[in-house]
Amino acid sequence: MIEIRNLRKAFNGKKILDGLNLDIEQSKITVIIGRSGEGKSVLIKHIIGLLKPDSGSIKLDGLDITTLKERELNEVRKRFGMLFQSGALFDSMNVADNVGFALKEHTGLQDDDIAKIVREKLTRVGLKGVERMATDELSGGMKKRVGLARAIVMDPEIVLFDEPTTGLDPIMSDSIADLVLDTQKALNTTYVLITHDIPFTYKIADKIAMLHEGKIIATGTVTEMKESTDPVVRQFLEGRAQGPITVY
């Protein structure tokens, strides 16, 4: 569904993505893992067109989105939903307005219909009666849930998740994992997540891709990755300070 080929991006001369290749399959959960600062967020921002690569292509069903103009890109983006690390909820709006925002902007739906869809999506992410709450009244976990409800409100084909468990306690992280699995199964959507949370990854991933030094150095199912003999992969999955990846 998404084919990333030879993607390169440098900031101020520093190579972040260095000839990255990756295939993302339809209706599967692909988890991209890697150390902090390896360029996982940069990669996800390329997939949705927030950043333009220095070279390389990202094809969505054969359409190279790196060559699109802003207006064409905005049309393609309607096929995506995105959950940001911090939630990125609009703090000038309450929960219901946040979730229903894209519907209001892109559809001719009446307020009552929007409210109904918003309620349904909030229920899907396990929240009830929070519509009128301000975003600063929400806990970290609730913000992620509202962010997810907002990401899936337009029934997108692909949902991108930027570090969905960062800042959450292990129990809340596990509940977010359940939520990811439930919603993906119910909506049959393609999910792409970036994280360095290994237990979370093992629980949800259909496919794991490891990003290291600007490239995807290994891909596979959870079992395949667990059995990997690559010392870099092993060190990262086992969370060891000693190994080929140097701590700086």
Binding site: K45, I48, G49, L50, E70, N74, E75, R77, K78, F80, G81, M82, F84, Q85, S86, A88, L89, F90, D91, F101, A102, E105, H106, L160
Partner: peptide
Amino acid sequence: VTEQIDALSTMGIN
């Protein structure tokens, strides 16, 4: 800085 502007872009809103 809280990525709200990026969030607008990802929703296809200029």
